[in-house]
Design a protein around this nucleic acid. Sequence first.
DNA 1: GACAGTGTTTACTC
DNA 2: TGAGTAAACACTGT
Length: 293
Amino acid sequence: MPELPEVETVARDLNRVLKNHVIKKVVVRVPKMILPLSAEDFGSGLKTWSIEKVSRRAKIIVINLSKPKAKAKKFLLIHLKMTGQLIWMPKIGQAVIGGHPQPGGGHNLPHKHTHAEFHFQDGSVLYFNDMRKFGWLKLVTESEKEIILSPHGVEPLAKDFSLTIFTNLITKYPNRTLKHTLLDQKLIAGLGNIYVDEACFKTGVLPTRPVHTLSRSDLTKLHQEIVAVLKLSIKKKGTSARNYVRADGTKGGFVPYLNVYGRAGLACKQCGNLISKTKHAGRGTHFCSKCQK
DNA sequence: GACAGTGTTTACTC
DNA sequence: TGAGTAAACACTGT
């Protein structure tokens, strides 16, 4: 499931290959996933515009668009939600190098989960796949972009993510559990189920702890571990636990580094105790009852 | 073959 | 006001 490191990886991949590419044609198969809702308006609003850069804010891909004579810039915002994929191919339907066939991704694009296609003047194509159709694509102006992006909290990899700011955010709701708080996108942007569980493990605290029970040193450690796990995962190009793939269709390499997520019933890498799994804050929650207190 | 589980976000109720 | 839950959807594992 795309969280910060996965979205960051896709954004970086796309920024490298798509820069200065001019959109020739857009195909939309599921209009309810786009804004404006009419496939014609969406397509005509993108045609002849070129990709200036691709970046990320929270879990949202931000594509800056420009056009020589246009007065204002435009932005294409894309949220992958649970199962969204953005796969770029140098030529239409060209087989993915190094990728493996898998549900909702890989070879032979477009397929039944391809809901939008962006064709560029050089013949390359960007495919948007989303098995569960939770994702969305929005073509917006600068001010509309701000309305969508601004409710999100601090970027955990930004310079301003200091221990002080982190502590202030975390302790804003002292009675909430740690997991609930870390998943709150309005406080810290980009953390999801995988990295919350992983950061809690590395810190040695249970995700179910109410925030007010955490010591000063717990918070210091947690702050460091959140940054560390995100950075390491980006270095490994993300976690392909299920559907996530990179922009070239290949998988991320972070799964071997997971300590608790997806490891219920397996031995803790640190102490050998079996990893537990419960449901908390509406999500599967993984932890080692020996290493985490 | 039915059905719970998978996790992001929004909208809704209590 | 905050917490909890359902819903959007489709596939996997039991």
